[in-house]
Nucleic acid binder design. Structure first.
Length: 809
RNA sequence: GGGCGGUUAGCUCAGUUGGGAGAGCACCAGCUCGACAAGCUGGGGGUCACUGGUUCGAGCCCAGUACCGCCCACCA
């Protein structure tokens, strides 16, 4: 064994071994009927592992490995999301580079081309998960476009249809002119943008031309589709105007002035031009007042055929034309700089065009009610608690879900139209035909479903639903789900309500919302900012174990900075472990692991290991992974290496059989405790221990062992004496042979120890004594402080006095 | 605008019923002994963002302020 632990080869070797030996598969090492199930958030099939995946993968793997060691039937379900827009985007770009387009090659060829691309280039992340040491059951990989999965999606859609929650309506949507599709509110990214606010006068139709109402707009081109001017009902400035008519500039159309509470009297002039066709608020006002809904902007983002002489021109040209027209007539009051948030497509960053379009929707209110109840009753709990409240309020606010997308890559809607326009919904065309009768021609709706629709079924569609499968029976409902904060609405909440809809039970009982990992400078990690750090880099440099440890260590709060130091600490820990194992292995001869504690340091370290076991279990149960790393670090460095190993070392050199057998046994326990976080180095060392019954990955998690709990403080006197000696050079008298032996072994007095400063140490202790005396002399403290606090203070005082006494005065 | 998180050592961060300010890294010094390309030991270094309040006692609880960040949001 080399003295420097080199993770590269070791980690890859174990990753392969575990997988080929079937130890990642569901049920490996199972010793109990209880199951433990996590489904991985299906990454985009086009994507690569980023830091968030690495942290999330580590968190899930720790829980899975811990439960596997405890004998649960564990299943960690892997797979991919087809990522509708994203994937279509990639392939379209390729086609563009080849001088063609999806329209040119047609839908069938396009979909075939996408599949082809996926086979060659997609699906890279699971390889990266393997490199992280993630013990997913890779043999069960599922894809949201698998044949069976598609059937699940369509079946669920039909179910919603039968519930009466699916409807088709002309409503305002977020239209991406680049992707040529509607996208949901949640896919719109608001970006601060510099703009110009134009104040334009709308003269009264029956006035002399100078009077009128001034409105403010950043998009003068939409004036062509204005159907009213709205003011707040309580706004006295305009009270007299309500009911009159004004003339829309440029188009010179007469429109009414209406009163509506959605208008903010504080903004601009307090009057709002109403354009139901191109603005969400205006759309609502329009519907409330029964106004028409003309549109002047087309699906390509340019002015359409209803824009009169501006038809075909760009919006910015149209803006200029309208403003110029108003200015010529003196109807332009002013223009001012204006900075505001503009909706953009999160994939292509095109400016979103709100426009009215005919789409399929899902009514949400009734659908999510059971989920809200489940969350309130804590049958599902989000962690941390703040996210639980957020999840509930998100569900309460659920707007109807726009399900249709004008894409080709995805699950085509299971809806067919008859020649007279009636829509029927069925999983297969044959079923649809049966509904309308033989001989009636049917045409399938060309749209596909929102990508998140299929993700919402992930926990059970991966287990074979809608068929009744043994997997579904055994592994649904699952246990935990872990994901990023930003997809609580998009994914997490939807899995909960669909699971309740189908099974009456939520798909898991705990949801971990993990930290967002920011760049070291505190900015968001992103490719476009150049702040991204590829997790493969620390993995290759310092090892997956070190990276896992480091990511868990920093994951204490909701936004955390990536820290190289934390990963470095993980590397140190792995190296330390490796070396203490060398010490033990090199000096235990033919001994086999057997717990035969004969000496103080052995009973003590067993007690310490048991305390750490308990603390770790507590951490895992509370999903407090950051604290767990601290427990492991101090257990290894301070307790195991600095005290136990140093104390027992001379006995190992002397070939003490009991010490050797015990050393191997306590090392086993240490490795088991570390395994969920640092699986590779622990398995590597484990494989070199004699008499292995199994791999560490499926070895039993240490049982509670309270036999030596009373010895947890056994080294206190020695540790006290060591501290005094190291600072002052004075060796304090110790009571027992064991204590003196350990002191000699660990502190090694006389070997290069510098003189120390006795007087400085006395002074330090005198101050402590004085402070403690003062505390205890304070009657209010003694009367009000909890008993254990006062008692602790008394003990401290006694100890300091003892130590001072030992130094002589 | 709403919600949430953060502000503690040079850096990254712990600090869980309020009870002597901590860790890792970095820095300085000593040691080097048969695991440790290092390790061990000791040390310097902090108005716990700010202002009030509650309390015998506040990093922690309350009110407010200021910055930083994340998410959400239709103010044209």
């Amino acid at each position: 064994m080399e003295s420097l632990y080199r993770p590269e080869g070791v980690e890859r070797r174990w990753q392969q071994t575990w997988e080929t030996e079937g130890l990642y598969a569901a049920g490996a090492g199972r010793r109990s009927d209880e199951s433990f199930v996590i489904c991985v958030p299906p990454p985009n099939v086009t994507g690569e592992l980023h830091m968030g995946h690495a942290l999330n993968g580590t968190i899930q793997d720790v829980l899975v490995r811990w439960h596997r060691m405890r004998g649960y039937d564990t299943l960690w379900q892997p797979g991919y999301d087809h990522a509708g827009i994203s994937t279509q985007n990639v392939v379209e770009k390729q086609l563009a580079a080849e001088g063609t387009s999806r329209q040119a090659i047609g839908r069938e060829a396009f979909v075939a081309r996408t599949w082809e691309w996926l086979e060659t280039t997609g699906r890279t992340i699971m390889g990266q998960y393997r490199r992280l040491g993630a013990s997913l059951d890779y043999g069960r990989e599922r894809f949201t476009m698998d044949e069976d999965y598609v059937r699940a999606v369509l079946t669920f859609f039909v179910r919603l249809w039968q519930r009466g929650w699916i409807y088709r309506d002309n409503r305002i949507v977020n239209w991406c002119p680049f992707h040529q599709t509607a996208i949901s509110d949640l896919e719109v990214e608001h970006v601060e943008t510099d703009d110009t606010l134009s104040f334009v006068r709308y003269p009264f139709a029956d006035g002399d031309g100078l009077e009128g109402i001034v409105v403010a707009t950043v998009r003068p081109a939409t004036m062509l589709a204005d159907v009213a001017v709205a003011v707040h009902p309580d706004d006295q400035r305009y009270a007299a105007a309500v009911g009159r008519e004004v003339v829309v500039p440029f188009v010179e159309r007469r429109v009414p002035v209406v009163a509506d509470e959605r208008v903010d009297p504080e903004f601009g002039s307090g009057a709002l031009k109403v354009t139901p066709g191109h603005d969400p608020t205006d759309f609502e006002i329009g519907r409330a007042h029964g106004l028409p809904e003309p549109m002047v902007i087309g699906l390509d983002g340019r002015m359409n055929e209803h824009a009169g002489r501006l038809a075909g021109v760009s919006q910015s040209e149209a803006n200029d034309a309208v403003v110029a027209w108003a200015e010529e007539r003196g109807w332009l009051e002013k223009r001012e700089h204006y900075r505001h948030a503009v909706g953009t497509c999160e994939r292509c960053h095109s400016r979103i065009e709100p426009l009215i379009s005919l789409q399929w929707w899902c009514r949400m209110q009734e659908a999510v009610a059971p989920a809200i109840e489940a969350l309130r009753e804590r049958r599902v709990r989000y962690h941390p608690e703040s996210q639980h409240r957020f999840a509930i309020s998100s569900l309460e606010e659920s707007p109807d879900w726009c399900l249709s997308r004008q894409l080709w890559w995805g699950h085509q809607l299971p809806i067919w139209y008859t020649p007279d326009g009636a829509a029927v919904c069925a999983v297969t065309e044959a079923d649809a035909q049966a509904q309308v009768g033989e001989g009636v021609p049917l045409e399938r709706d060309p749209d596909v479903l929102d990508t998140w629709f299929s993700s919402a079924l992930w926990p059970y569609a991966t287990l074979g639903w809608p068929d009744e499968t043994p997997e579904l029976d055994r592994y649904y409902p699952g246990d935990v789900n872990s994901t990023a904060r930003e997809i609580i609405r998009l994914w997490e909440n939807r899995m909960i309500w669909t699971g309740l809809e189908v099974f009456g039970e939520p798909p898991f009982h705990d949801v971990i919302i993990h930290s967002t990992v920011l760049a070291p400078d505190g900015r968001r990690m992103s490719k476009s900012l150049g702040t991204g750090i590829d997790p493969m880099e620390p993995i290759e440099r310092h090892g997956a174990d070190a990276t896992r440890y480091g990511l868990l260590k920093i994951s204490s709060t909701q936004d955390v900075r990536y820290s190289h130091g934390a990963i470095e600490e993980g590397r140190k820990l792995a190296n330390k472990l490796w070396n203490v194992a060398r010490l033990v292995l090199a000096n235990t001869g033919e001994a086999a692991p057997d717990l035969r504690p004969r000496a103080l340091e052995e009973r003590w370290v067993i007690a310490r290991l048991d305390t750490a076991r308990h603390e770790l279990e507590d951490c895992w149960a509370r999903f407090d992974f950051a604290s767990a790393t601290g427990v492991l670090y101090h257990l290894t460095f301070d307790d195991f290496c600095d005290w136990y190993a140093e104390a027992v070392k001379p006995r190992l050199y002397d070939r003490d059989d009991d010490a050797a057998a015990t050393a191997l046994a306590v090392l086993e326990r240490l490795l088991a405790l570390l395994h969920p976080v640092m699986p590779h180095v622990t398995e590597e060392i484990w494989s070199q221990l004699p008499a292995r019954a199994s791999r560490l990955i499926v070895a039993p998690w240490p049982e509670a062992d309270a036999r030596f709990a009373a010895d947890a403080a056994a080294l206190d006197r020695v540790q006290e004496a060591a501290a005094i000696y190291r600072r002052s050079g004075v060796a304090v008298e110790l009571g027992t042979e064991d204590e003196r032996r350990i002191f000699e072994a660990v502190v090694r007095p006389g070997r290069g120890q510098r003189a120390g400063d006795v007087e400085a140490e006395r002074e330090r202790l005198r101050k402590e004594v004085a402070r403690a005396e003062q505390m205890l002399a304070n009657e209010r403290f003694v009367a009000n402080a909890p008993g254990h606090v006062v008692e602790a203070e008394r003990e401290k005082l006694a100890r300091y006095r003892r130590e001072l006494d030992a130094l002589g005065s």
